[in-house]
Nucleic acid binder design. Sequence first.
RNA 1: CGGGAUGUGGCUCAGCUUGGUAGAGCGUCCGCUUUGGGAGCGGAAGGUCGGAGGUUCGAAUCCUCUCAUCCCGACCA
Length: 474
Amino acid sequence: MNNALANPNVDLSDLAIKAGLADYSPVRGCMVIKPYGYAIWELIQKELDARIKECGHENAYFPLFIPQSFINKEEDHIEGFAPECAVVTHAGGEKLEEPLVVRPTSETIIYHMFSKWIQSWRDLPYSVNQWANVVRWEMRTRMFLRTTEFLWQEGHTAHESAENADREARRMLDVYYDFMSKVLALAPLVGEKTDSERFAGAHKTYSLEVLLRDGKILQAGTSHHLGQGFAKAFDIQFQNKNNELEYVHLTSWGVSTRLIGAIILGHQDDKGLILPPNVAPIQAIIIPIYKNEEQKEKVHSNCQAIQNELKVLGIRSKVDFNDQITPGAKFNEWELKGVPVRIHVGPRDVDNNVVEIVRRDTLSKIKDITRLGLGEKINALLIEIQNSLYQRNLNWREENTHEVDSFDEINKVLDKKGGFLKVHWCGSQEHESKIKEQTKATIRIKPFEKIDGGGKCIVSGAPSKTRVFIGRAY
RNA sequence: CGGGAUGUGGCUCAGCUUGGUAGAGCGUCCGCUUUGGGAGCGGAAGGUCGGAGGUUCGAAUCCUCUCAUCCCGACCA
């Protein structure tokens, strides 16, 4: 398949608005998430929250406001975040003694509390997760991909040793992969960020990178091994088994409403959204078709019966009773909204005790499906669609990942089809920024396992131990 | 924050050059006929032209400022 859209940059917000996910708001860079879009977020929360709790992490809530001095405590952190902070200077009609930063992320205030709560090796590992909104005053915003305010989940853990912290960061990365592959039907590429792409204040940043239908790449989630930098800045010490004071080793990890952008851009086709069944607010839409009142009554009660049957099996479904528009208009509308399965019920179907089914991902239509056991059939179909969307995204990524060995070829390949390029890189930051300047591609990740060791850096020809993955990202 | 573009009924846009007090299509509402891939006809409602100033007898139109959105850069989940 070729690039799905001629100009996807324009189409994302357009599609999100037309499909009823979101709308612009009167506030710069901020969007309103409408019920259909928020329902997707709620499903994301429900699925991911369960997985996070399965790891033993509990939810808590920390304040929206952070004293400005907190942000300043970790050197790299302030450098990374200060420019994009919204700051409250006045409240209650008076100037505040110390300005309050609207959280861009909560490391500082959470670790301030950690220092009070963690005293002994017996307290470790210590962890907390929060679902919250954060604000980052970005220069340029794009619906779902980069909004001034966004919703996310941020988990924070403290450990006795660097090994344990790194293991936790890697575990949560695996949790994210499991969630994205099974629930969002996305197959992100996973690895470690380079020094220049690392989170402000982190020791190591791990990332999940999704290849979208337009050939561009989206960082869909990150997990950081923070080392002891924040622990030292916030004085989080514990007494170890040898009665000595030590600083903890921290991790933090998060995913945001950007995931909805990943779902849109990762699966869409030219008819609109394609929602993976596991995050589709409506998994099956039932469309009645009739010519007169008598038929209408018969068809409607049949549709209602089907919905009841689906509900018993836990399938999220709805009957489109709207009689102001024709069935054809409804077909298009629900395709735009990405509903995985459509069930058409007309007078002929009622008489023959059958239905017609259309699946959104392939647009294939199957007539005369026997009503007997319909719920199970729909269930099986939803599972098949879910799997096939994942497989499609995985294939897309694999088909669009190429080994490239000459610098000039980078632009040629990326201009034509985008995707990931596997190139040798010697590790020099100077060469990394040369790639960025001349190709607009960035090093997305360094793989965990060395690929094709012993090559030559694509920029300088210097010895390189492994290939890294580069590409153009949002 | 630099460069470019745009902003006119709910939506997409015309009108602006050459100022004279707003128009189309879609949607909405009412009626009838329709309904298996975006229905047809008839009737109706709906806009102080993004906002604020200014020029003018008179501004959607000209000038200044401002806000927002989109595209291209620098920044980022």
